[in-house]
C-alpha cells in the first residue's frame, strides 16, 4: 500500500487532528471561562448526568425508534420504486426533472404541511424524516437501474426471463453497490430530517431536548448531547461504510 510509505499507519493523522481540536477547545474554554462556552470536561460531565436521566433516555429511545422506522421505509420504498421507474427510460426522462426539482427545495419549509395533516407527534416527524430520505434514495436507484448493462438485459430477454426473475437475477445484483451507497447517504439525510423536525416541534426526541436546553441556556448539556448525537450517527455510518465496501468488492462490475 502506498499509504504506508509516508510514515506511520493511516489512522494517526486524523487522530492528531482530533486531539489538536480538543486541545484548542479545552484551552480556549479555560481562557474564556464563560458560562456560554464550556470545555469538553463540563460537556461530558453533563452528558453523563443526562444519560442517567430516564426522561432523557426516553427521548433518545423515541428518536431511535422513529428513525429506524422511517429509515427502513425510505430505503424500501425508494429502492423498489426507483428500480421500477429506472427500467423505463421514457418514464424516467419524464418524471426525473420533477423529482430532482423537489429534491432541491429545502424540505424543512414543507414541514408545517406535515404538521397540519398529521398532527404533532411521531407520525408527522417520522413522515418528514421518511420524505427527507426517500427522494435521494429514489434518485440514486433510478440512475443505477438505468445504468444496468444492456448486454445483460438483452441476455435476459433472449432467455425469456419473466419480469420477476429479471429483477431478481439481473437488476438487483447490478444495482446492489448503488443501493449500499444510497443506504449510507440516506441514513444521514433521514437523521437530519428527523432532528430538524424534532427541533421545530416535538414533545420528545433528541432535537426537542436540544431546543429545550437552549431555552434553559444550558450550553454544556447541548454540547454533551451534540457529542452523543455524533456518536449515535457515526456508529451506523461506519457499519454501513463497511457493508458498502463488501458489497462493492463482491458485486461491482468492472470494465
Amino acid at each position: 500500500m502506498s499509504a504506508r510509505r509516508a510514515g506511520g499507519p493511516a489512522w494517526i493523522p486524523p487522530l492528531v487532528l482530533a486531539a489538536a481540536i480538543v486541545a484548542v477547545w479545552t484551552v480556549t474554554a479555560a481562557l474564556a471561562d464563560s458560562a456560554v462556552y464550556p470545555g469538553p470536561g463540563q460537556a461530558l460531565e453533563s452528558l453523563r448526568a443526562d444519560i442517567g436521566d430516564t426522561r432523557f433516555m426516553g427521548s433518545v429511545a423515541d428518536t431511535a425508534r422513529v428513525l429506524l422506522l422511517s429509515y427502513a421505509a425510505a430505503i424500501g420504498v425508494g429502492a423498489i420504486t426507483g428500480m421500477l421507474l429506472g427500467l423505463s427510460a421514457f418514464w424516467s426522462r419524464a418524471a426525473l426533472p420533477v423529482v430532482y426539482a423537489l429534491n432541491s427545495v429545502p424540505k424543512i419549509v414543507l414541514y408545517p404541511i406535515f404538521l397540519l395533516f398529521l398532527g404533532i407527534g411521531d407520525l408527522s416527524r417520522g413522515s418528514f424524516a421518511f420524505v427527507s430520505g426517500v427522494l435521494p434514495m429514489f434518485l440514486i436507484m433510478v440512475e443505477a437501474t438505468a445504468g444496468v448493462s444492456r448486454l445483460h438485459l438483452k441476455m435476459s430477454a433472449s432467455l425469456g426471463m419473466s419480469r420477476w426473475s429479471l429483477l431478481r437475477r439481473i437488476v438487483v445484483p447490478s444495482v446492489l453497490p448503488s443501493l449500499a451507497s444510497g443506504m449510507r447517504l440516506c441514513f444521514g439525510l433521514t437523521l437530519i430530517g428527523l432532528l430538524l423536525a424534532e427541533m421545530f416541534s416535538g414533545s420528545s426526541g433528541l432535537g426537542y431536548e436540544l431546543l429545550r436546553n437552549l431555552s434553559l441556556a444550558r450550553v454544556e448539556n447541548i454540547i454533551g448531547q451534540v457529542i452523543l448525537i455524533g456518536v449515535l450517527a457515526l456508529v451506523p455510518t461506519l457499519a454501513l461504510q463497511q457493508l458498502e465496501l463488501r458489497i462493492r468488492n463482491r458485486y461491482e462490475v468492472t470494465a
Binding site: G188, L189, L191, L195, I222, V226, A233
Partner: peptide, 11 residues
C-alpha cells in the same frame, strides 16, 4: 454528512 450538523445550531 452523516452527522446532523444542525444540532450545532443551538450551541
Amino acid at each position: 454528512y452523516a452527522l446532523p450538523i444542525f444540532a450545532l445550531y443551538p450551541v
